[in-house]
């Protein structure tokens, strides 16, 4: 039994090695991109969050074998994937929704130009 099962999992676990190397590359690239380039803040944030999502997907697929149960089980693998995707959907709604609702419009981000924005808002409302 041991030999039989071991045949499947012999040698170097390439999936893990590749996942590890890619994670290191993505981490270093994110740091370099965030701190050493002269692009605008918005582009930097977009790129580093994109890199984070790629790295999270790498962990889930290469290290955690997210899809593995589907090969043997048929159903629970799909439940796993659907559940994790739904978890990320909920997370994005909570984070982006909270930041959007609480940081734009009503609550001024910086006190200095906040007054200016509020005047603009009330001005445009009068015109409407």
């Amino acid at each position: 039994m041991a030999n039989h099962a071991a045949a499947q999992h012999k040698g170097i676990p390439w999936k893990h090695v590749v996942g590890f190397v890619l994670s290191i590359v993505l981490t270093l690239f994110a740091i370099w991109f965030a701190l050493e380039t002269d692009l605008s803040t918005n582009i930097k944030l977009l790129v580093i969050f994109g890199l984070a999502i790629i790295q999270a997907a790498l962990q889930l697929l290469m290290f955690m074998h997210l899809t593995e149960n589907s090969r043997t089980q048929g159903f629970s693998g799909r439940i796993q994937i659907g559940n994790i995707l739904f978890g990320f959907f909920v997370a994005i709604v909570i984070v982006v929704g909270s930041v959007w609702v609480l940081s734009s419009g009503h609550a001024e981000k910086k006190p200095t130009n906040g007054e200016h924005e509020m005047k603009m808002d009330s001005g445009s409302m009068n015109h409407d």
Binding site: N83, I84, F86, G87, F88, V90, A91, I92, I94, V95
Partner: peptide, 8 residues
């Protein structure tokens, strides 16, 4: 999945 929601 619930942990993802908690941390979010």
């Amino acid at each position: 999945g619930a942990e993802i929601a908690l941390f979010s």
